[in-house]
Design a protein around this nucleic acid. Structure first.
Length: 256
DNA sequence: ATGGCCGCTGGAAGCGGA
């Protein structure tokens, strides 16, 4: 079973690219982030036409997350992270699909740092850590997939010294990610490619993709109960080179 | 050091992104 995550950066503007990728890569389950569309403007029809069941949590202009499945119906278990009833951002949706719990997340960017946006990022991260601990304790098979907006190590940045003060590479953000992994999660892409420069994002500036000046910020974490089933993890790098591409590439794992 | 490029909103130019 193949499970993918893809920050589409605008689900309607990206629809031709998204549909092409779904047809060619045919992931069994796909998590999408940055829909940038209100709930009623999600392109449900074209996605269902490709054979996917789908749930989503939209928001006008920003954020927004969705889960797609072509291997059985999606049973939503959560909309939004627990821990802050005043958080109005659409950044987390969770569902049981084909015997696996899927958490699809879009962690706050957090720039500029320091500042209120960075504070929000760290608070959101703390809430994710608390919720993830409960998921591990439940012993269910779980995949946490999405745009974490964190490069976990220096290996995950094309030029680490340039990013030290950035919210995506800040010590606090990396420490939070490390705390998450210490619960027992496996960073699927890194575990399959130790020591390898492997990126999931290239910005639109300065020919970043052509220079491979990238970041690894889209992650799939598998729970301890799923670790033995992880047989592959890859980035669909070529999708980033398509016309009208997102600045992120899709990432996927294969479970036996 | 800066700004470069995008998508969205609203119907111009500003915001947020990373």
């Amino acid at each position: 079973m193949r499970i993918a995550t893809y920050n589409v950066n605008g689900v309607n503007g990206r629809l031709p690219v998204l549909l092409r990728w779904l047809k060619e890569a045919a992931p069994d389950i796909a998590c999408l982030q940055e829909l940038k569309a209100p709930q009623e403007k999600f392109p449900e029809g074209p996605i269902r036409d490709l054979g996917y069941d789908v749930i989503w949590h939209g928001q006008k202009s920003w954020n927004g997350v969705a889960i797609l499945s072509r291997v059985g119906n999606i049973h939503q278990t959560r909309r939004g992270l627990p821990g802050d009833p005043d958080d109005s951002h659409s950044r987390y949706i969770e569902a049981a699909v084909n015997g696996i719990l899927i958490g699809c997340l879009y962690l706050p960017n957090g720039n500029p740092r320091p500042g209120p946006k960075f504070d929000y990022k760290l608070r959101w991260f703390d809430r994710l850590i608390d919720h993830a601990a409960e998921l591990v304790a439940s012993r269910q098979p779980v995949v946490l997939a999405g745009d974490f907006n964190v490069m976990p190590t220096e290996l995950d940045v094309y030029k680490p010294e340039r990013w030290l003060d950035d919210a995506l590479f800040a010590p606090e953000a990396r420490a939070a990610y490390a705390t998450l992994l210490e619960q027992g999660w496996t960073d699927a892409l890194r575990s399959r490619h130790p020591g390898e420069k492997i990126y999931t994002f290239w910005d639109y500036f300065r020919n970043a993709f052509g220079r491979n000046a990238g970041l690894r910020i889209d992650h799939l974490l598998v729970s301890p109960s799923l670790r033995k089933r992880l047989i592959d993890a890859q980035v669909d790098v070529e999708v980033r080179g398509w016309e009208k591409s997102s600045d992120h590439a899709p990432v996927w794992i294969e479970l036996s």
